[in-house]
Amino acid sequence: MSSLANLRLPTRRYALGAGFALEGLKYFKYWVLAALVLSFAVPLVISQYSDVALSAWYYTANVGKWFTAFVGGGFVFTLVPNMIAAGLTRRELAVSMGVFGVLWSLVLGAVAFAGILGERAYYDALGWSQGIDASDAIAPIGSLGDTIAFASYYPLLYLVYFAAGTVIGIASYRWEGAGWLLLVPIIPVVFSLDNGLYDTEPVGPGWAGFLGLFMDGWARGVVIATIVAVTAVLAAAAYRILIDVPLRSKKA
């Protein structure tokens, strides 16, 4: 990581977190670029054969949530042995992962936010309808204000997915062969809250949103507060699992 030169001990945890985010974005920049190009090109192709009524960016932004979960989990799984062996404490790594998660979610959230507004202008220019798949019916996102409100939750959603991925990643490192089972309680909670926030069908396994049945009628503010609380619980769980994780023995 070229961004690591001249780190100072008291602040290296923050610099490392920012470095992880920067390196992650650099590593995946072509993926993001490809998603951007596809999201704007595919509707153009579809328009040659039928009316465009669905937001392509909506799907891209949703896939970004799963991608973010994989980034959180994959990075922590790889970083635990590498960073501890390089002289970092677990507490420092936990702080770094926190900084990384916040920055990653903000940047990707900003990209998702800009993308959906850009797509709105693009669709308006070509006379298309920017709709979403809302409970078996296609519904337009709405006015500019509605679109901004719709997109403004992405950073928070990316953060909760990042936290979920991080818990599963560190658990998989700690409990080899069994840690991934934390998927079972975590996915339905996060996916259902995502579902509940938009009252739509996010991209992913629909069955995992079964907890949404219990959220019918929840005010948006309550759902958001619950997402914030779940993010905090997941971050605390990741910290607890990480803080005394032993490094695995090397295998021949």
Partner: peptide, 15 residues
């Protein structure tokens, strides 16, 4: 090269 740069996490690392 990236592995060596990771060593810079240590303030004493001599790149």
């Amino acid at each position: 090269k990236a592995v060596i740069e990771t060593g810079q996490i240590r303030p004493s690392f001599d790149t």
